[in-house]
Design a protein around this nucleic acid. Structure first.
Lengths: 358, 358
DNA sequence: CTAAAATATGTAACCGGTTACATGTGGTAG
DNA sequence: CTACCACATGTAACCGGTTACATATTTTAG
């Protein structure tokens, strides 16, 4: 299995390597007969152009990165598949970068764009405000942010794009629905408060409360730590951390429900926490929806078959994936311009996990 | 943002580019002082070595591909994350290749190894017997197969590895458990019959039936088509196909249950079909577990919270992922040798979706 | 004290393509 | 007939590193 090179194809066909290259890339002039002979030779010898060489010569790789914290969320799976399918149609490849909420890993992956390994990046990076990220944006590397925003680049020509679900509206929908059912004390189980998205998420919560004349009580917002910087220092990754998050969720939710017996409804922001929350609810002896109404984020195929069928705020994940991929390719192939924004709306899907407040 | 090159670092530091390269790669001799100066210069200028150039020069990319049909299966998600984490620790990157059951896409991705873009491949390719695949194996490209086997390479030195769950034992466990509960007519909902894994899966089914003195009835095995070659010709991918599979499952299962009223237990081989099966069961008016016992494949976090909590055969997906990644890296970094095999055992997790036959 | 070994660094070939530029042919408009 | 343009192909520089080899200096061993 000696590696076949373009030189050998050229020799075989009696042309120069430049003509072979033109044939491969279908640019420049190549006589039809010559083209046919070259293509035949390539087929016969099973020739495939060396990608590394092309990448070096062209300065592009037709590969983009997708930096997500985890795939253990149906929304992310939908998005990932949508992104990959769209990219594939446009001739791009996808490098997966799951960070398990570890910021160091996140930063490491971001550098791949600068190292010329990736033409661009789609990310919902946690440390979206970090220096490294701003640097990337400033240097005009193509980046599409998912559900993130970045201040200070307004109007400047960059290669930055934003695809967002209306996070504020999502929590608004959930809160408003529950408040409309008469619930007064609506708990929220969410992640680290320092995430830049929390403001918008809680904004929708407060907005809905206010509209219904309810008071905002910070004690009703229960954060579960998802950031796993420390947990990953020792190299123990997935299984341990997945369990760690689950345990942390069970414990935090259990304590929350015990400490707040007047909470009659719960909004769960992160899908990854849902099993833990459900378990905690069982453990403290509450029943959904009779003793506790529940709205979760992200729809998933099994949601209608849970006990009870789960009312959720569905995210347009597949569409977000398509948009993000489209946008990134555009940013890669076109010159810098003011950042583009796409905002998609979430949707409340009512099933049977909520009841009117007695 | 002029791109910084190793040459500039060399000039800046007053050394040759070779010394810079030695510093970067930490091989060969470099004086400690010089090394320090070079590293300082690299930091100051924000230098990152160009990956394409390194790939070309070294003939390696430290990137491997993962070819899976879909991520809409918790087992695949677990595996993917485990693979990626393991690879990352060993300094490799992961290129995602979801094929949506399209064999053309599968083949396309396989070629990436030959084009030098990938150092190796982990795959559960559908067309595992195809010419392209055998060719790859023959040419000693590092490949690890997940739940697949390949005849005709026994003893030959290749760079092939196999990580398998004991598929036969998995169906055996499910079937034996149901038969032990007194069920006689146990239905199986599965995928395309031409998949090379079907033989082993059904083997376990028949083995258990035989051990319990029950007869095998081919009519009890209901296939749902998952192969989406045609559906993808028009470029319409994810959402349409996901729905298509769901609808096909609902319909096939519904007809099956209606045509076979004496079936008192059901084994669902593919997780992606589970929602469709559950919906069909509802539609035909059966109730789990009272009118129908159910065992599904793959455990998932929400399984205990389904109605009823689902009895499943759990796959050691995370472990399979780790093993596969370890194995692939070994195959990449070591010379060809006889194929390695890892066989892991599934486990029956009994919850409440099965009842004794009345 | 001297030869061998270890350390340190530079030179230049090489990885396998892409592409700007030069060169050459044939057809066509003026 | 000449100038110009489309077509066709080759030459060689270039992409940005890696690394074999040559050379020089410093240690170490005997």
């Amino acid at each position: 299995m000696t590696k076949i090179t373009a030189r050998q194809i050229a020799a075989q066909t009696g042309v120069s390597i430049a003509t072979v290259s033109r044939t491969i890339n279908n640019n420049g002039y190549v006589h039809a007969d010559v083209r046919a002979r070259i293509e035949a030779a390539m087929r016969d010898l099973g020739y495939l152009p060396n990608q590394a060489a092309r990448n070096l010569a062209t300065g592009r790789t037709r590969t983009v990165g997708l930096v997500l914290q985890t795939l253990h969320s149906p929304a992310f799976v939908d998005m990932t598949e949508a992104i990959q399918m769209t990219l594939r149609e446009k001739g791009y490849f996808l490098l997966m970068c799951n960070t398990q909420f570890n910021q160091q890993i996140e930063t490491d992956y971001l550098r791949l764009v600068q190292s010329g390994m990736l033409d661009g990046m789609i990310t919902n990076a946690i440390n979206d405000t970090a220096t490294e990220m701003r640097q990337l944006v400033q240097q005009n590397y193509p980046i599409v942010f998912i559900n993130r925003s970045l201040t200070g680049i307004e109007g400047q020509p960059t290669r930055t794009g934003f695809v967002q679900m209306d996070l504020q509206h999502a929590t608004f929908l959930a809160t408003d629905y529950l408040a409309g059912l008469g619930h007064r004390r609506i708990g929220v189980i969410t992640g680290d408060m320092q995430l830049s998205t929390q403001q918008r998420r809680l904004g929708g919560y407060r907005e809905a409360l206010q509209a219904r004349g309810l008071e905002f009580d910070p004690l009703l917002v229960q954060a579960v730590a998802v950031n796993r910087n420390e947990a990953t220092r020792d190299g123990q990754l997935t299984p341990k951390n997945a369990n760690a998050l689950h345990e942390a969720t069970v414990q935090a939710t259990g304590e929350f429900l015990t400490a707040m017996p007047d909470v009659s409804a719960l909004i769960v922001i992160y899908h990854t926490m849902l099993p833990g929350v459900l378990q905690a609810i069982r453990q403290v002896g509450r029943r959904v929806p009779d003793d506790l109404s529940l709205v979760a984020f992200s729809d998933f195929p099994m949601a209608p078959f849970l006990d009870p069928p789960l009312t959720v705020v569905a995210q347009p994940s597949t569409e977000m994936g398509h948009k993000a991929a489209d946008m990134l390719v555009a940013l890669i192939e076109q010159p810098a311009q003011p950042a583009q924004h796409v905002l998609l709306r979430p949707e409340l899907i009512v099933r049977q996990s909520c009841k009117p407040y007695p």
